[in-house]
Amino acid sequence: MAGRDRSDFAEFVTARSPALHRAAYLMVGDVSLAQDLVQEALTKTYVAWPRLRDKRNAEAYTRKAITTTAISWFRRKGWSHEISSDAPPDAGAPGHADKVAQSAWLWEALQELPVRQRAAIVLRYYEDLTEAQTADAMGCAVGTVKSQVSAGLSKLRERLGDDPDLLPLTDLVVNR
C-alpha cells in the first residue's frame, strides 16, 4: 500500500520499541501499562505513517503520542499511584540513607508526581531533550515545560530534602 509501507514500519518498530518502552515505563511506572501505552502510540504512528514524510520524524511522533496519551489516560481515568505515606529518610542527615534506599524513595516520589510533571522530568533528564523538544513532545509551550519541571523538582525536593547531589537545583537547570 502506497504511503503506509509495512516493512518500513516494522523496521522502525523493531529498532526503536525498546527505547520507547523504557521511556513509557518511566512515565507510568508500570510495565504492563507501559506496554499498552507503546502499543497505542505505535498504532497511532501506523495511522499517521503516510504523513510522516521524513521517517526520521517517526520516533519524535511516537514519543509525542506516548506522552500525550499517558497524560490523557491519567486525566481521563483519574489514575494515580498508590504511594506509601511513610516519611522518607532524613535526607538532611548525611550518611543516614544509603543510595539504594535513596533511589527507592526517589522512584516512589517521582511516581507520585502529577503525570505532566513526571513526563516533563523524564523527557528532560532521561531522554535529554531540550526544552523546545520537550514542549513539542508534550504538545505544550516551552514556558509550560519550564513550569512543569520546576514544579516537579520542587515537589521532589519537598519530599526528599534539598540534597543537591540527588536533585538538580531549579535555578541551575540548564535551559537549552
Binding site: R22, A23, Y25, L26, S103, Y125, L166, P168
Partner: peptide, 13 residues
C-alpha cells in the same frame, strides 16, 4: 547535579 536523577532513571528503565 542532575546525575543522580539521571542515573536513577536509567537504572530503573
Amino acid at each position: 547535579m542532575t546525575e543522580r536523577l539521571k542515573q536513577l532513571l536509567h537504572e530503573r528503565s
